[in-house]
Every structure is written in C-alpha cells, then in structure tokens.
C-alpha cells in the first residue's frame, strides 16, 4: 500500500482465524497501524487487523504475538525501493 505515491516499507498479513484477540500486537506496534476488529472471528475473538497503510515492516508484532502462524511480516524489496 502506498501513501502519497511512496510505498510503505512493510506489510503485514494477519491471520484472522488464528488470532485470539489478545491485543499484544496492537499495543506493541510502533506506528499503531493494527487494531482489533469489531467483528468476531470463527473462534469468537475480535481479531487483530491491519489498517492497510503505514506498516514499517519492523516485525515487532510478529515477535510479541503468541500464535505461531498469527502474523506474516513483509518488507519492501530494495530494488523496488530504489
């Protein structure tokens, strides 16, 4: 996703079905681009969702999330950034 034509440095893919809505990633994300959804997932939790813009690819959400496959973090390729 890009703002003002400049692509974000990172990107996250949240696995809404594996998320337990603990909110640790929401609290830990430095640019605050994650939040818990209004809707419930299949399990009955409010899953964390990505705002869609502003991820820096820092990876912090990945490390604070207790679920093995809850989050995937991507980083912008150097070539594309150039």
């Amino acid at each position: 996703m890009a703002v003002n034509g400049k692509p974000d440095r990172g990107l996250v893919e949240m696995n809404a079905e594996e998320c337990k809505g603990c909110g640790l990633c929401v609290e830990a994300c430095p640019p605050k681009v994650l939040h818990l959804a209004e809707a419930l997932n299949h399990y009955g939790y409010h899953p964390a969702v990505y705002a869609g813009v502003g991820c820096t690819g820092c990876g912090i959400c990945f490390f604070v999330c207790p679920e093995p496959g809850g989050i995937r973090v991507f980083r912008l390729d150097a070539v594309a950034a150039a």
Partner: peptide, 25 residues
Amino acid sequence: ASYTVIHEKAEAFYDTFERKAELQG
C-alpha cells in the same frame, strides 16, 4: 512495489496442529 516475507511461522512448527479436529493453526 514488491515485498518479501521476513517473518512467518517457523519451519520448526508443524504446518497443522492435529491435537483437535478444528482450528489446527
């Protein structure tokens, strides 16, 4: 822009957790 995965579920974990029939992730 193209992106590459930098963090994802570790290889050392099973792909699916077969303890229960549901929610095997």
